[in-house]
Nucleic acid binder design. Structure first.
Lengths: 118, 118
DNA sequence: GTTGGTGTATTAGTATATTAATACACATGC
DNA sequence: GCATGTGTATTAATATACTAATACACCAAC
């Protein structure tokens, strides 16, 4: 998995779980790049992707800040469910293939939720 | 998404949901390739991947057949749960980011299960 | 042995993705 | 103005992934 995607996923998980809240700042691209020994552009690509997804916002001259979640942007409840659906399907198919029962799959999701949420 | 992956995912879903059962045959690579207007090797790549995953088996001279699910149940329950976990995590993070509640995410999975299972 | 059916190893061409180097634009504080 | 901090557009090099063309090995039935 590419570096920029690993970075984006990590930050996205922190925000989704509430461990990074709206207004919190994120380390600058150069800080992260120096810490990981990679190119700042690679970090920038991760930050930019998160900005496109509405997770972060650019604060001119300061850096990237966790954005305030705008529910309208995501659409209706049905639309948002439809967006997660493919990912859930993928997990379900894999789980069934492994011989897990529906109840066991639900249990895995419950565990995941408990670990993600603060 | 690449063609060979779409094919593999479709067949995998059919097997996981029980719509294709052990012993059932799968159309030959040339049949599928002709029907879709693509190269047989592309189909072969999908079939091969499914064989690696233990979903299909090669029956020399005849073709590919849905495998008996003994290998899938290899490993403890905890191990199998651990294997699905990353996929569930991905769905959960995306769902939370879209503002879905845990209950709503569980509901999406329930719907997915009901649609997949026969 | 011949025919007609499997799947696939190998090779090659093409497209796409990923990372990095460089130079730039903008904002802030002195 | 100047120094120092942001992020990034551009370009280029590299790696990886995907598809296809060809030729081959295998099996079953006649």
């Amino acid at each position: 998995m590419p570096i920029y995607r690993q970075l984006a996923d990590q930050v996205e998980a922190l925000v989704a779980g509430g461990r990074l809240r709206p207004g919190d700042t994120v380390p600058s691209v150069r800080q992260v790049a120096a810490a990981l020994g990679i190119n700042p552009m690679t970090v920038s690509k991760a930050w930019s992707r998160l900005e496109s997804d509405g997770v972060l916002e650019r604060d001119r001259g300061r850096g990237m800040v966790v954005a305030v979640p705008r529910d309208r942007e995501a659409g209706s409840l049905a639309e948002r469910k439809a967006q997660v659906r493919p990912l859930v399907d993928q997990a379900v198919v894999r789980g069934l293939q492994l011989g897990l029962t529906p109840a066991q799959l639900q249990a895995v999701m419950k565990t995941s939720l408990e670990e993600k949420l603060p």
